[in-house]
Amino acid sequence: MELHQHNMADLFNQLGLGSSSQEIKQFVNSHRQQHSSEPLHHASFWNPSQAAFLKQAIEEDADWAELVDQLNIMLRD
């Protein structure tokens, strides 16, 4: 099985969000949840399809899983 090399901009595009470095930084800064222990896909700022994608990426250990983990860390630092 060939794994695709995605980057954070690709993940933001997949989620239908702005994907420039400035847009990613702005998203992270405005949605940071330092003290939340809920799974990333439960955050209130995702729409249902975004939440489902994030949950599925982790559950299936998909190509996107590493980036979803990185996004999770970025939103909690």
Rank of each mutant, 00 (worst) to 15 (best):
E66S: 03
L17M: 04
L75W: 05
L71N: 10
Q14K: 15
R76P: 08
A65N: 11
Q34D: 10
L17Y: 12
L54C: 12
S44H: 07
L67P: 12
W64S: 01
F27L: 12
E66H: 03
Q50H: 11
A65K: 11
Q70T: 12
G16R: 02
S37F: 14
L3I: 10
L11R: 09
E23Y: 13
L71R: 09
N29K: 10
S44G: 11
Q56W: 00
K55H: 07
L3Q: 15
F27A: 11
I58Y: 00
S36F: 06
D77P: 14
D69E: 14
Q34Y: 06
L75D: 02
Q34G: 09
Q70A: 10
L75A: 03
I24T: 11
N72E: 15
S30W: 08
H31Y: 03
E2D: 15
A52V: 03
N13F: 08
L11T: 11
I73K: 13
L17I: 01
E66N: 06
Q26C: 05
E38A: 14
E59T: 02
A9G: 09
Q70M: 07
G16Q: 01
H4G: 10
R76E: 08
E59A: 07
Q5H: 13
S37N: 11
G16D: 05
V68P: 11
F53W: 07
F45A: 04
L71T: 15
H41K: 01
V28K: 12
S36E: 13
Q34T: 05
H31L: 02
S20C: 01
N7D: 15
L17T: 01
Q26K: 13
W64G: 01
K25W: 03
N13R: 15
N13P: 00
N7P: 15
Q26G: 02
A57N: 01
E23N: 10
N13Y: 10
D69T: 06
M8D: 04
